Simulated assay, not measured.
Amino acid sequence: MTLHERVLLLDVLDILKKHSNEQHTFTQKQVIDKLQEDEHYEFVQRKTVKHALQKLRDYGFVDAKAYSRNVKNQQTGEIEEITVYRDYYYKPPFSEQELHLLIDGILFSKHATYSMKQALIEKLENLTSEHFKSRKSYMIADDGIGLTDAQLFQNIRKLNEAMSASKKVAFSYNRYVVNARYELLFEQEKTRDGQVRQYVINPYQMVATNGRYYVICNNDRFDNLSYYRIDRMSHIVVQEEAVKPIKTLPGYEKGLHMPEHMQQHLYLFSGELITASIRFQKKRLTEFVDWFGTTQPYFSNQTTDDITATIRVNYNALRKWALQYGLYFRVIEPAQLVEDIKADIEQVWGNYFQ
């Protein structure tokens, strides 16, 4: 294949990629018309374009609708049925339904800024034709406060570098404050004497949950796991010191099993892992499974309307979850957790009725 033929293949593919899909096909003549808009193809031959389209179909980049035609065999004189291809269109790597699914995931992401979402969606749109209509117009601009896209990805890169080398990391943690002029600011946490607070952790895993990026880690001062929002971290420095192996932490002697861990730690709170029982109406079972999954619950005491589920879960996470879903779910064990939830409810009541 000559250089000219290769360039023609790319130009024909570009035309079909931009302007065609399965509902908006191109005939050979329409491809030629588009090519001839460029003076370099003013005298392009039909046979050359036909050959290019056949090559692109053979390579799997484009498809065409097949039609049957009866022709006379020049050697035998018999009428034979042959297949001819017309109405060519580009075959994108994703279907429109798949693109909508990917774009919706970006639109509803909380850990991507407005500019990042816009750039990602435009890249996805470029994978298909001009006839694809995304939901980019539904995007809402963010407030511009917090880390930039580049800073967030720099944080992720640094953490990945540290975990790959099994090294500790030091960093500053940021929070929102309101100054004397009532302006919302994003600044580093400070100690009581006004110095920037420095954190040093053993990083084990990064995870995206509840619309945010987190690093699962351990602080040497404690023997449990901690969780930090990656979009609130800054000034990350990979240390020379090796990480503390996660298998040295109580309860993680066999390592970290992520699917189970995420079901047990709903909001990524630190704290004790407990066995708890929850009583609820069976019509709420789908909501329960959405939170706690299908593998770990043990069900008992089923009646016509109600059922009890027993699970392993983080104490603090279930305490907060019980407040969020207290209208429909009642924690019945352990007793101390029930008492803590009652105290929380009394405090909520006091916030509104005292």
Rank of each mutant, 00 (worst) to 15 (best):
M1C: 06
H4T: 14
H4R: 13
E5L: 08
R6L: 14
L13Y: 07
V31C: 01
L35N: 00
H40W: 14
L53C: 01
L56M: 06
N70P: 05
K72P: 03
T76W: 03
G77D: 00
E78V: 06
E81A: 11
R86C: 09
P92R: 11
P92N: 09
P92W: 10
P93T: 10
P93D: 03
P93G: 04
F94N: 05
Q97A: 14
L99M: 12
F108C: 06
S109C: 02
H111A: 12
T113I: 11
S115I: 13
M116V: 15
K117L: 02
Q118M: 13
S129D: 01
S137V: 09
L152N: 02
N160P: 03
K167T: 04
R175S: 14
Y182E: 12
E183F: 10
F186Y: 08
E187T: 13
V196A: 12
A208K: 10
N210A: 05
R212I: 06
C217K: 01
M233T: 07
H235R: 13
I236S: 02
E240Q: 09
E241T: 12
E241C: 04
V243Q: 02
K244R: 15
I246V: 12
I246K: 04
L249M: 06
Y252H: 11
E253G: 05
H265S: 04
L268M: 10
F269S: 09
F269H: 13
L273W: 06
L273Y: 07
K282F: 10
F288D: 00
V289P: 04
F299V: 08
S300K: 15
T303A: 08
D305Y: 14
D306L: 13
T310R: 07
I311V: 13
K320H: 13
W321G: 02
Q324M: 15
L327W: 15
A335H: 13
L337D: 00
V338H: 04
V338S: 03
K342S: 10
Q347A: 12
